[in-house]
């Protein structure tokens, strides 16, 4: 017997609990820096294949310890392996740093909005990353490089605190050696043998070659870095709707229910994490919201 309310809310399928993770197996652990590592994962039921779009994230669960939202850092073209790059900062991520090959991990996702890879076709693409912010942008780089003919000039501007904090050093060198991809790297401070740039990443923006009138910029890094990067890009002539940023907030569910990730009317988990800047410009003006 249906009550009037039951009819009104049209009950969904009980069996699909969105809070249940899927089990994945650690295939490979790779140390990136002193506090950052990458995990290659495969579905342990052998179902194989994890589909995602660049910019999306998963909720990763470490048995008995908890969950954390982590963006996907692997190649969207390689379906078999799911890759995450994780910085050990809290109980969950520090625990994950101890994972070894063969260990298991819970995965819920993929969640969230994506980098504008379609919109960027036929245009110059400027990717600007600060610190661990390169991780959610790496899937875009893979996508650009395997569909190189679809895009104009491609640029990566990457800044880290010190040379030891640079992620994916080998890949950076590979990318830099290509003639069709401009890669500029900088650090805030350096000792010893570093011969590269020492300046903030925003200073690289005027040095790069791209057409501000016909380009798309994708930016991810600490909040202060994104603020100044956006200002510099606009100084170069980009408009608000050519700039995309990825936001970060506390998240407990990833599906718009827990309330933690709100920025005024936005739920970063489902309305983001990737936003076109014009949607954020008013919110950027407000403090502590």
């Amino acid at each position: 017997m249906a009550t009037v309310l039951e009819r009104q809310i049209k009950m969904g399928d009980d069996n699909q609990n969105p809070m249940h993770p899927k089990l994945f197996k650690v295939m490979k652990v790779r140390k990136e820096t002193h506090d950052t590592f990458s995990l290659n994962l495969e579905a342990s039921d052998g179902s194989g294949g994890f589909h995602f779009q660049p910019g999306q994230f998963n909720m990763l669960y470490l048995f008995g310890v908890g969950e954390a939202p982590i963006s996907i850092s692997g190649d969207p073209g390689v379906k078999k392996t799911l890759t995450h790059t994780i910085r050990a900062v809290g109980a969950v991520t520090k625990g994950m740093m101890k994972l070894k090959k063969g260990d298991s991990l819970g995965v819920r996702g993929p969640y969230g909005t994506t980098w504008p890879t379609k919109e960027a076709e036929g245009k110059d693409v400027v990717i600007i990353a600060g610190g661990i912010g390169l991780a959610p942008l790496r899937p875009v780089i893979y996508h650009l490089l395997s569909n190189r003919e679809k895009f104009g000039k491609t640029v990566l501007l990457y800044g880290a605190r010190t040379p030891d904090d640079l992620l994916y050093v080998q890949e950076l060198e590979q990318w830099r050696s290509r003639f069709d991809f401009e890669v500029l790297v900088t650090v805030d401070r350096a000792l010893g043998k570093w011969q590269g740039n020492i300046e903030v990443v925003t200073r690289l923006i005027p040095k790069a070659t791209y057409d501000p009138a016909n380009s798309i910029a994708m930016v991810c890094g600490p909040s202060i870095m994104m603020r100044f990067t956006v200002l510099e890009l606009m100084k170069q002539g980009l408009t608000q709707n050519q700039i995309y940023i990825s936001e970060e907030r506390n998240m407990k569910c990833g599906i718009g229910h827990c309330g933690h990730c709100q920025i005024e009317h936005i739920f970063v988990c489902k309305d983001g994490p990737v936003f076109r800047y014009d949607a954020m410009v008013e919110l950027f003006k407000k403090r502590d919201i």
């Binding site: 009550t3 039951e6 009950m11 009980d14 599906i255």
Partner: peptide, 27 residues
């Protein structure tokens, strides 16, 4: 209650616990 129905049962993801509890109510 209708406002919470909206949050937990109308989006892309439905809250399983809320649905279970809400299913057989008499009001």
């Amino acid at each position: 209650i209708m406002i919470q129905d909206n949050i937990f049962t109308k989006g892309d993801y439905k809250d399983s616990i809320y649905l279970r509890n809400r299913k057989n109510n008499f009001i």
